[in-house]
Design a protein around this nucleic acid. Structure first.
Length: 551
RNA sequence: GCGCCCGUAGCUCAACUGGAUAGAGCAUCGGACUUCGAAUCCGAGGGUCGGGGGUUCAAAUCCCUCCGGGCGCACCA
């Protein structure tokens, strides 16, 4: 790509300078190549001179002059070099260079923008991981979309990605769930019942109870609590699965916390920690010396009841991730789970694994607004908005787009009323409309019998307008944007890129005709449009939003 | 009280991870459809980057401190 060609040139010049004793090798890898914000500062700029000068106590502009002379050698690529400000070296590329981006797009199509910096390394993205106690809520929705898009990004840059859902269908939580269902079941039959104090109050419990009545009437009235637990769990999981499918998410594997017990992996971890002297007994409980790993206090891993706390299975689970051969593990958590992270990392470290291979994406809450007032949500109480309800209101595309519009560590405000009202002027439509428009141009060309040419036969030098130049530049930036977004685990960058590309296209469209009197120019613009269409479709696909041909 | 996150235009958010004159979208005001889709475009106004110190050629970005908001701080998950 153009950027990497230029980066190579810059590195070459750096080497040449070292060989000619213009500067030492001290600044190797420290300078960067950036795209300036303002017109007139070139297509690219480098802080090279300031970095080198800083290392050697020289004047930046003097270094800049030397670098500029070296860069000017490649006249095919570089048109003009200017020194500006405190010592920036601004590079103006030969205009013809930019249109060269259209060839790889045409050639690679839906693969354009992908790369292999992941080198097939096994990576896991663990997300959602909600226990089956109720439908997915808005917070889960953000987690799901974020995790899925991060996984897609890693796939795009060449990792071998597994999407995993970790859940627990045992434990106290689930017993309460079973008891809640039984109470609702009996209630529906008009029989005496006892709803648990901290039971699950959502209306979905009645639905599941009704299902049981439809199936067997009173047949379950003397059934064991466990039967109810199982019924509830299965029904709710099916529901969660259906919701996830609706928003285009599927998992490669599900990992049940309970299996860690069945396979004796929990005891293994305790035994191993004990052998390392990292565990002790106190007041009937078993403690893990997390203070040895920089924490303020030790933590209980087995309660005096003999039951492990959540930490122990979490640690065992992460050890399994390592044992299964994952080199990179990413966990997507809501901010309310932040406290669990240091404990798990301490456990991983204690067991002799590299904790740096585990990365956590922590996203802040979604604050749900209704009529300017915040809606408080709780899974247990009936007052929550589900992902399903959101999809009903705004659709999958808008939902995914909205959840990705903010970086993970910022809170996300979701105004229901606005989301409904905005269904016509939603930002997602802005991008999709660009794609639909491009499709429409092609349809019209076909109707008029205008030949859409092969790229090889087209003279791209006629793309001389400012808008065309900007579009080509943006298209050329797409591959490095994907790499950066993957590197930062920041899918929101794709959203912003798409809005910019769509915006540039809309401006271009309003100012210039694609189909003109000039056959050469028309041909070149067709090629440009196809490039834009491909990149829009690729970017939308990466974040799981559709690219409609009509709307 | 302690830990993590956030504070940028009236509102919701960006800012290529330390770069040059801080940018978009809503909202407001004013323009553009007999011509490839007006779900669009063009223009205008709007800022002590929460306050204050520091680090250096360069700070919204890093460090310290204070203020304000969110989330945690269990032998719940």
């Amino acid at each position: 790509m153009i950027r990497s060609r230029l980066k190579n040139l810059l590195d070459q010049c750096f080497q040449q300078g070292v060989e000619q004793n213009l500067w030492s090798a001290a600044a190797a890898g420290l300078y960067n190549l950036e795209t300036p914000k303002h017109e007139g500062q070139g297509d690219f700029a480098t802080n090279f001179a300031m970095i080198v000068a800083g290392k050697e106590r020289r004047k930046p502009r003097e270094v800049a002059e030397q670098l500029a002379a070296l860069l000017r050698q490649d006249a095919a690529l570089v048109d003009k070099v200017e020194i500006a400000g405190p010592g920036f070296v601004n590079l103006f590329l030969n205009p013809a260079v930019w249109s060269s981006v259209l060839a790889p797009i045409a050639e690679q199509q839906e693969r354009f923008g992908l790369c292999n910096i992941g080198k097939g390394i096994k990576a896991m993205v663990e997300f959602v991981s909600a226990n089956p106690t109720g439908p997915l809520t808005v917070g889960h929705g953000r987690n799901a979309v974020l995790g899925d898009s991060v996984a897609s990004l890693l796939v795009a840059v060449g990792y071998d990605v597994t999407r995993e859902y970790y859940f627990n269908d045992a434990g106290r939580q689930m017993r309460v769930l079973g008891a809640s269902l039984k109470a609702r079941y009996l209630e529906k039959l008009g029989l005496p019942n006892e709803f648990p104090e901290d039971g699950y109050q959502g209306g979905y419990m009645y639905d599941i109870a009704q299902g049981m009545i439809d199936e067997a009437g009173e047949g379950f009235k003397d059934a064991d609590l466990d039967v109810f637990r199982k019924r509830a769990q299965e029904a709710i999981f099916a529901d969660i699965d259906a919701t996830l499918k609706r928003i285009g998410i599927s998992f490669d594997s599900y990992y049940n916390e309970h299996s860690l017990y069945e396979n004796g992996l929990i005891e293994d971890v305790v035994a191993e920690l004990r052998a390392k002297g990292l565990v002790y007994e106190q007041e009937g409980a078993t403690w893990f010396k997390t203070t040895e790993f920089g924490q303020a206090q030790d933590r209980v891993i087995i309660k005096n009841t003999g039951e492990p706390t959540y930490r122990l299975p979490d640690i065992a689970y992460h050890r399994e991730k390592f044992r299964r051969g994952f080199e990179r593990m990413i966990n997507v958590f809501g901010s309310d789970h932040i406290a669990t992270v240091p404990d798990v990392l301490a456990g991983v470290e204690a067991l002799g694994y590299d904790k740096n291979k585990v990365q956590v994406i922590m996203h802040q809450f979604v604050t749900l607004m209704r009529g300017g007032k915040q809606v408080k949500m709780s899974t247990r109480k009936a007052s929550f908005i589900t992902v399903d309800e959101l999809v009903d209101e705004v659709g999958t595309d808008a939902l995914r787009f909205f959840f990705l519009m903010r970086k993970a560590d910022a809170q996300l405000e979701f105004d229901l009323e606005l989301a409904k009202a905005q269904s016509q002027e939603n930002p997602v439509y802005y991008v999709q409309y660009g794609h639909a428009r491009l499709c429409s141009i092609e349809r019209l060309a076909a109707e008029r019998g205008v030949l859409v040419p092969e790229l090889a036969d087209v003279n791209l030098d006629c793309l001389r307008e400012l808008e065309e130049y900007q579009l080509l530049k943006t298209l050329a930036a797409y591959p490095s944007l994907i790499a950066d977004a993957a590197n930062d685990l920041s899918p929101h960058r794709i959203i912003f890129f798409l809005m910019e590309l769509a915006g540039q296209f809309h401006s271009f469209y309003n100012k210039h005709k694609v189909m003109t009197e000039d056959a050469q120019l028309t041909a070149a613009r067709f090629c440009l449009c196809r490039g834009i269409k491909t990149v829009l479709a690729n970017g939308l696909g990466l974040v799981g939003v559709s690219a409609p041909e009509r709307m």
